[in-house]
Design a protein around this nucleic acid. Structure first.
Length: 695
DNA sequence: TGGCCTCGAGTTCA
DNA sequence: CTCGAGGCCA
């Protein structure tokens, strides 16, 4: 009996410590698997000895039945809102007003990110979480205790240090971006409703009457202030208060900084704005709080907001705009992608005019129609997306029927007129025109010329567009037959098109451009087999597969003669890819083009029998991310490959080392989560130098 | 058969 | 960078 209790206490201490390290110190001490194991152990003990299962046991986070409604909670100290500043001038005014009272050397501000979530008040009595309430109107909020208990990073019990008898902690409940994405991804797969954005996700999750639903949502919390306290004197500055909260086991943002004066707060603002996309959560601005509590009290409040704090807002990540049209694009493989043409709108600093709608399913999911008002969002990644339709603003006729019709996938390719078909089980619709389709031919040539393929300098999309449109280039082998006269003729025709400026550009300039292109084309003749295979654009044969094929077959004829059976024996090649490759080389047309390329002088070193099996890194998988200083990721990858390493594109638990340069993003986070070894660029350089392969 | 782990394809703007 | 889907292993 006693023994069980002791073990239970020890396990509790371990799990509380793990929580603290993970959520407050951001320094995971044990892997997830071990955490789960601990939790299961505790559960097992509590089942055998039910008297051990106290309300603040970590197994009891979801220990409550569905409620009928939320009770009301009066805030003993009102939860106020903050005044907003939208420009540097407004921030300057704010500081000047304070400077009337506070001497300049004491204009110290605690700066913190303003999370886009839901303000919450947590009440601890004798160190135990007894109540949690929403802000509500500031005077009275809703009792969401059972839901708040399900949020793992909120301690049910304060940690060791002496703490006040009553402590009210205020902070923000939010949904991290990653969690939001994973949640929506799963919801989609299960045909459940998705969350519109992380903010709504956080707010909606807390208002669930069934705490089990809340528990299934990826919620998190940062503390940023205290409310009522009793039984202990609190420190004299906001910075110190935050440090105490942290010591009591409450997560506080690691971005909080204390700075002096106007220039410094504005610098903080700009720094955060720059790093905004890289943060794990959405923020809509930063907050400056005068650090000295006694000066705070001196300044007091105006109506409903403190005079000593202000929120400095960022430009919005979401904007409303109108869908002008829904066009479709044809990709290299014939994939038909619908694109929303938008009324240009500035979203967080960039003008957005296009947004992909991916496929018919996505359009159906959004229910978007031409003429709709939509919300466009530019989050974590740079690529904007249509988040949702503002249905109430859809134009309607007198009977209330929508005026604009549903979007329908075209049946014929808009470029070549061939049939468009959608394979069973595929989400993409495809033009069946193949290389008969100009759009696909253009894309095939763009792919052929691209950096990772033949790397033809001077051959951009615009030029390829003209080359194909005027039919100077029908397939990639034609590129090698181009001469300067042809290029100049094409240039003349393209400039004579309506809408272009007058003709007669300086002749020399035109020939310079053509010469550069021809040099680029000539230089590309010397290549490598894997690049050549990749450049052919066989479906499902990308960089990695092309490399494997080049290594396994040594030279092109062997690959061209291989039948499906032979191809299936190649690692990473399964039935589908084998069929694609065999079918590609079976086409007379493709063989002719390859023949043409070889006759034009395209060549590569054959069978450079790389003895890579015995490098110092053989058997290890490397992933590169972020930007490196000494060389590009590709160059670094080649050096590592020369030492026997395999370069992969994404991090998993099989990854041996992640090399992280500057501004590494989600891959670094994932590597940390999976306990994968991380090297800095310096580590890499040291290693290379040690093995005689310096930069 | 299901559940990873990868790779391939598509994508926006300055 | 993210999503979808092909390949591989249990």
């Amino acid at each position: 009996m006693h023994a069980a209790k002791q073990i239970h206490e020890r396990l509790l201490a371990q799990i509380e410590d793990a929580n603290y390290r993970y959520y407050v110190l951001d320094d995971p001490s044990i892997p997830d698997s071990e955490y789960d194991h601990l939790l299961r152990e505790i559960e097992r003990l509590e089942q055998a000895h039910p008297e051990l299962a106290t309300p603040d046991s970590p197994t009891r986070r979801v220990g409550h039945a569905v409620q009928a409604s939320f009770g009301k909670v009066k805030h003993r100290i009102a939860m106020l809102s903050l005044a907003n500043a939208f420009s540097d001038e407004e921030v300057a005014d704010f500081l000047h007003r304070i400077a009337n009272t506070v001497p300049p050397e004491q204009l110290e501000f605690s700066c913190e990110p303003k999370l886009d979530g839901l303000a919450i008040s947590l009440r601890y009595e004798d160190g135990r979480l007894v109540q949690a309430a929403t802000r509500g109107d500031g005077e009275e909020g809703e009792d969401v205790t059972v839901n708040i208990r399900t949020i793992r990073c909120i301690p049910l019990k304060l940690r060791g240090q002496p703490y006040p008898k009553v402590l009210e902690v205020r902070g923000e409940v939010y949904m991290p971006r990653r969690g939001f994405e994973i949640y929506n991804h799963r919801a989609l797969q299960r045909n459940e409703k998705t969350l519109a954005n992380p903010r709504n996700g956080a707010a909606g999750s807390l208002r669930q009457l069934d705490p089990k639903i809340t528990a299934s949502r990826p919620l998190s919390f940062y503390a940023y202030a205290i409310g009522e306290t009793e039984g202990m004197a609190m420190p004299g500055t906001h910075t110190e208060i935050l440090a105490m909260l942290r010591a009591w086991g409450l997560p506080v943002s690691a971005e909080v900084k204390t700075v002096l004066g106007l220039q410094a707060v504005l610098e903080y603002y700009r720094g955060m704005l720059q790093r905004r996309d890289g943060l794990a959560y959405d923020i809509d601005g930063v907050v400056y709080k005068l650090d000295s509590i006694s000066w705070q009290n001196e300044l007091g409040f105006v109506s409903r907001a403190p005079r000593w704090a202000i929120a400095h807002k960022f430009p919005a990540l979401e904007q409303a705009t109108t869908v002008l049209a829904i066009d479709v694009q044809v990709g290299r493989t014939g994939a038909i992608t619908p694109v929303a043409r938008l009324q240009p709108v500035n979203v967080a600093g960039v003008t957005v005019t296009n947004a992909t709608l991916h496929n018919a399913d996505q359009i159906a999911r959004l229910g978007v129609r031409v003429g709709d008002r939509v919300i466009v969002r530019r989050a974590g990644d740079v690529i904007p997306e249509v988040v949702r339709v503002m249905l109430q603003e859809r134009p309607k006729d007198a009977r209330g029927e929508p005026l604009n019709p549903d979007f329908e996938m075209p049946v014929k390719c808009p470029v070549c007129g061939s049939d468009i078909s959608r394979e069973e089980g595929e989400s993409a619709s495809r033009c069946t025109g193949g290389l008969y389709c100009d759009a696909q031919r253009k894309q095939a040539i763009i792919h052929f010329a691209s950096r990772k393929a033949m790397d033809i300098a001077g051959l951009g999309e615009r030029i390829i567009d003209d080359l194909v449109s005027y039919d100077y280039v029908h397939h990639v082998a034609d590129l090698y037959a181009l001469d300067i006269e042809t290029l100049q003729e094409m240039r003349r025709r393209s400039q004579a098109e309506p809408g272009q400026q007058d003709i007669g550009p300086i002749k020399n300039e035109a020939s310079k451009w053509a010469e550069n292109l021809l040099t680029g084309i000539a230089a590309s003749k010397k290549t490598r087999l894997d690049r050549f295979i990749y450049a052919l654009g066989i479906r499902d044969v990308g960089e990695a597969t092309a490399k494997t094929l080049a290594r396994q077959f040594g030279d092109l004829p062997a690959l061209m003669q291989a039948d499906e059976q032979r191809l299936l024996r190649i690692p990473d090649v399964g039935p589908i890819v084998a069929r694609r490759i065999a079918a590609f080389f079976a086409q007379t047309h493709n063989r002719e083009v390859i023949d043409g390329l070889l006759k034009a002088g395209v060549h590569w070193p054959v069978n450079e029998a790389k003895a890579e099996a015995d490098g110092p890194l053989s058997g290890q998988t490397f992933v590169l991310t972020g930007s490196l200083m000494a060389f590009t990721r590709e160059q670094a990858g080649e050096k590592l490959e020369a030492l026997g390493a395999k370069i992969a594109s994404s991090v998993s638990k099989k990854t041996s080392v992640l090399v992280a340069g500057e501004d590494a993003g989600s891959k670094l986070a994932k590597a940390r989560a999976l306990n994968v070894r991380v090297w800095s660029e310096q580590d890499l350089l040291d290693f290379l130098a040690e093995h005689g392969a310096g930069a």
